[in-house]
Write a protein that binds this DNA or RNA. Structure first.
Lengths: 205, 205
DNA sequence: CGATAAGCTGACGGCATGACAGGACATGTA
DNA sequence: TACATGTCCTGTCATGCCGTCAGCTTATCG
């Protein structure tokens, strides 16, 4: 229930909010700044969103929609031999790239989810699920054939932990760098850990 | 440069801020609320801290000091056989317990660090370092003896990724649970992943 | 008890929030 | 072009928090 012009204004507000989240601390993002940046007034903002949080939620839903493509990083891939190593590499690259691209919104989603907001928990769950679910199925398949990282280990817990690791590492490269993990070292390490976690074996040379 | 009474007031403000961080969204924590809860006035708060962020930074430094004890989870442990499995278990338990106990402050530290605030990056780096540094040395030792998860893999990157994983998992149990990873399944999975990452082998039965 | 300093607060200008009513604009009709 | 209509935007206002100052209260010491 909004005309063409209204949609455009609304979208412009969302875009500007997204940019502000990349440049200023979440705590300091003010409705008045978003409105000014969009060339409109605070009153207009409140016409479309009850508060900043609601607009952030909408941005998060856009990111959620885009996350669907992450499933392709896992679906129908081989985990044996050199192909297995490549699968792990591409998975790491793909997840890292996605998380870095949506850096700003994802850290706010993370915060709100950690604070217990169920709407954001749900969104984060579904974003991670785009990778975790197919990955868990892959692990199940490997375990059924007697392979995999461990007999009685839950595939969902393994997949979830690995994806969580990738997301967290991409969200905080600086701390790891200060601890001696160079940017260049990180991807091989993550690739190894993912391959180990999924297959129980070190990746092929 | 503060007397006995001043110190007490200051500490009371910090305590109340800590409690508020556990109960309300960080974005909504107001100076006036903290002051009221501490039975004092906003003006008093500003006498001790330039703003909320500065007070949070101080809370983070307390957590940093406590994190020193985390090193004991790694120092002088064995990673072979059943003892190795136990080492991994206790490491997982210890890190998870620490992160859960300091849940509220750590999620704010994480946010501020992700937003690029160097003071918070530094604190997070040092907290993680309490585990990452000794763990990286352990991995180095194992690699020197021809063991470990992979030849050319950076020990710092491995240790950093593993610890980051533990921290991130403990910060967001709900999403993983919704994805089918029961609370009970999580620790074994993490233990396996840590053991695999450090030694390159599955933990002993 | 009186003096000095430390600690606390009431009060104020400034700014953001969130709601409303009325003005501005695009679109369709003649 | 003139006009009618519904959508969209904004000026304005009450409210509440921020951050600061002058001045008051409380502790400490001679």
């Amino acid at each position: 229930m909004a005309g063409r012009r209204g949609q455009a204004t609304r979208q412009k507000l969302l875009d500007c909010l997204g940019k502000m989240l990349s440049t200023s601390p979440y705590r300091d993002v003010r409705v008045i700044d978003v409105a000014r940046k969009a060339g409109t007034s605070p009153a207009t903002f409140y016409q479309y969103f009850p508060d900043v949080e609601a607009a952030v939620l909408e941005l998060a839903e856009v990111t959620l929609r885009e996350s669907a493509s992450l499933s392709e990083l896992v679906a129908g891939r081989s985990w044996t031999g050199k192909a297995g190593r490549q699968t792990a590499e591409e998975l790491v690259d793909g997840v890292l790239a996605f998380w870095r691209r949506h850096d700003a919104i994802l850290r706010v989603v993370d915060l709100a989810a950690s604070e217990g907001d169920r709407r954001f928990v749900r969104i984060r769950t579904r974003i991670q699920g785009a990778v975790v679910k197919p990955l868990a199925e892959t692990i199940d398949g490997l375990q059924a054939r007697g392979r995999g990282s461990g007999g009685g280990i839950s595939s969902a817990a393994l997949a979830g932990s690995l994806v969580t690791m990738l997301a967290a590492v991409s969200a905080q490269p600086k701390s790891l760098q200060s601890l001696g993990a160079k940017q260049t070292d990180l991807k091989p390490a993550l690739t190894t850990l993912v391959h180990l976690g999924v297959t129980g074996r070190k990746p092929a040379a």
